[in-house]
Amino acid sequence: MSTLRILRDLLRYNGEFAVGLMLVLIVLAVAGCSFFSPYPPMDVYVVPPDVPPSWEYPLGTTSRGQDVFWQLTFAIRNTLLFGIVVAALSRVISLLVGLISGYKGGWVDRILMSINDTFVVVPLFPILVLFYFIMRDEMTWAMLAIITALLGWAYDARLIRSIAMSLRTREFTRQAVFSGMSTGKIVFQEHLPFVLPIVFSTTMNNINWSIGIEVTLSVLGFTDINTPTIGGMIYWANQHTAMVSGIWWWITFPIMLVIMLFIGLFLLAISMNEYIDPRSRLSRLGGQA
């Protein structure tokens, strides 16, 4: 089935998907606008400060003399990219660990799971703050993404492992073994399709989770404030006590946009889950699970 047809079917028969897609598309469009911004993102006092939303500055301007809308386009682009990079990296790790651990069992499983459990119990937030204090200036955007990804795969790896373990006992796995297939082939061709629904829904959740982390860290000033992000915008707004001085637009619009992204991704996750789930896929094909 072609991707286009899947999209069409989803749009037609799944309200959540349509709404989710719309929200995400709006956010993406805003992020896309960053490429047409008249101002470089880090320049200050390019426009008159503290102007409320108006025709000239639709979302107002900041106390630092930046246009909120154009600032927002850069911020959401970086934040979204951060989420996607973290999710992609951590998915790769959790898939590798989960599938191999579940299929191989024995000592491989024990070693991988003890590493896994270490990451599950490690307190995430203090570690990130600790990294910030150790690395300071080297704590770039990319570094933060890698560290967050390394801390964000463990739960999902356990989930994937539990599915892989049940797949291992299925007869078709033995059939594959006796057809001479290698471990890699069994894990990534036979078993991967069964965990894809989980991977998709956890991707969305993981993007949301990592954006949350990034925003929280930025608000507290524990990130590289030289890259404009949603959290960074809120950080600067707080520095200038925007809420107290009535510059509400500086803080409200970033928060609204990030909430739109959260909801959009969440809706996409649940609707695509239904579509990709092997059982509903099978009943569409005409078989039984």
Binding site: E171, F172, Q175, A176, S179, M181, Q189, E190, P193, R281
Partner: peptide
């Protein structure tokens, strides 16, 4: 259950 329900049967023969 002897063949992966999401895969074509012939792959086992070819493998």
């Amino acid at each position: 259950d002897a063949f992966n329900p999401l895969k074509r049967i012939d792959r086992y023969l070819f493998s």
